[in-house]
Write a protein that binds this DNA or RNA. Sequence first.
DNA 1: TAGTAATATATGAATATATATATATTGAGA
DNA 2: TCTCAATATATATATATTCATATATTACTA
Lengths: 100, 100
Amino acid sequence: MTHRTQSLPTPLVDDTARILKCLGHPLRLHILDFLERSGEATVSEIHEALDVEQAIASQHLINMRDKGILIRRKEGVNVYYAIGDARALKVLSCVREAAC
Amino acid sequence: MTHRTQSLPTPLVDDTARILKCLGHPLRLHILDFLERSGEATVSEIHEALDVEQAIASQHLINMRDKGILIRRKEGVNVYYAIGDARALKVLSCVREAAC
DNA sequence: TAGTAATATATGAATATATATATATTGAGA
DNA sequence: TCTCAATATATATATATTCATATATTACTA
């Protein structure tokens, strides 16, 4: 069969792979799901809602933020995280579809 | 903000994370892209087209097959791999969109 | 300014992953 | 049956990831 489309450019593949790899972890995917439904949430809210240690939650949140998947906003002693990447939202909506 | 939708079920999240993690590797994503454009391809065609060692290509192909992302068909001494998972195709189409 | 709650960081141990290389297996044809 | 080409497997090494735990930082408030 002939190739009807061009091969994906390597920089795009590399960047996409980074995002997919990051989302390819159950807890991070749960966090993403929670944040999408919450709009935004503090570290405490997340670690309580998902029943994981505070440090673990913080580690994964920072991980996702480093990759541009999440953004954060400080308010006093609290830190609010939210989804900051359209690709992550897209992945989530695909998973939602599958859930039906 | 209240939660307008239910949280994703854990088994679905786990399964999805497994797939995303697997696709979250540049070479595997390139292989997926190549297979989508080829329809199907042998190990040799893949390792030559993507310029990677035969054993490396085989390892990644088996990896993806183990996770149900690829299927394969034997024909004599050749083994043809093809995409066998709708989710993988969906991911690919999203990446294609981003490429435009 | 001392205490406290929220968050982040440092560190180590266990496990998983990626790559490279060498070798084995399989099937076809001379 | 011998050889060759295609594919798979075994193994070692290096590196990355994950989780757990302890500790540090930060900002508010009494």
